[in-house]
Simulated scan of single mutants.
Amino acid sequence: MPAARLSVVVVTTSRPHAPEYQRYSALLLQRAVAASRAEGWQVDVIAAQEAGLTGSLRAADGSSALLVLGGEDIAPEFYGGARGYAGEGAHAERADEAQIALVQRAVERGTPVLGVCRGHQVINVALGGTLIQDLGERSSHRHEDVPIEFVMADHLVRIENGSRLHAQLGDTATTRSAHHQAVDRLGASLRGVATASDGLVEAIEHRDAPVLGVQWHPEDPGAVSGQLESLLGTLAQARALAA
Rank of each mutant, 00 (worst) to 15 (best):
T234M: 04
P19H: 00
H143T: 09
A236R: 15
E144R: 15
Y85V: 01
A35Q: 02
G87K: 07
G233C: 01
D44M: 08
L156H: 13
I74A: 07
R83V: 14
G119S: 07
V113T: 05
R239S: 10
R176G: 05
V193S: 03
T175S: 05
E97C: 15
E97S: 13
A223G: 04
A90D: 15
I74K: 00
V9D: 01
L231E: 01
P147A: 02
P112I: 07
V211S: 00
G115Q: 11
Q104K: 12
A240G: 08
R31L: 11
G71L: 04
Q49K: 14
L66D: 03
I46D: 08
L6A: 06
V103E: 07
S189M: 13
I132D: 10
W216Q: 04
Q30M: 00
A34C: 01
E229A: 12
E88R: 14
A92I: 12
V103G: 05
H217Y: 06
R164P: 09
G84N: 06
H143L: 12
Y79L: 00
L29K: 10
R138E: 15
E144P: 09
L67W: 05
A48D: 06
V68D: 03
G192C: 10
D134K: 01
A3H: 12
S139Y: 02
L69H: 03
G71F: 07
I123T: 04
R15S: 13
I132H: 14
I148V: 15
H166E: 00
A173D: 01
M152H: 15
V211H: 09
E160K: 15
A90H: 13
V8A: 07
P210G: 08
L6H: 08
T195Y: 15
H155N: 09
Q215K: 02
G89D: 15
I74R: 02
D73R: 00
A51W: 03
V45A: 04
F78I: 03
E137A: 15
Y21A: 12
L29P: 05
H180A: 08
R23T: 11
L27H: 03
A86H: 14
S189F: 14
D171K: 00
V214W: 02
V11I: 14
H166F: 07
D171A: 02
M152P: 12
R158P: 00
G87Y: 09
T234A: 01
E50V: 02
G55W: 02
R138P: 13
A75I: 00
C117I: 10
L190D: 08
S163R: 08
V157G: 04
A153I: 01
H166V: 00
R94L: 12
G192V: 05
Y24G: 01
L169F: 03
V125S: 11
R5D: 01
G162N: 03
E20W: 14
P16H: 09
E205I: 06
P2Q: 11
H120P: 13
A106F: 12
A209C: 05
R37F: 02
G128E: 11
L66C: 02
R142S: 12
R109K: 14
A60D: 02
A48I: 00
A82Q: 15
E72C: 13
A223E: 06
S7C: 11
S163A: 12
Q181D: 11
L127K: 08
A209Y: 07
V146H: 12
L114N: 07
A75E: 10
E77D: 14
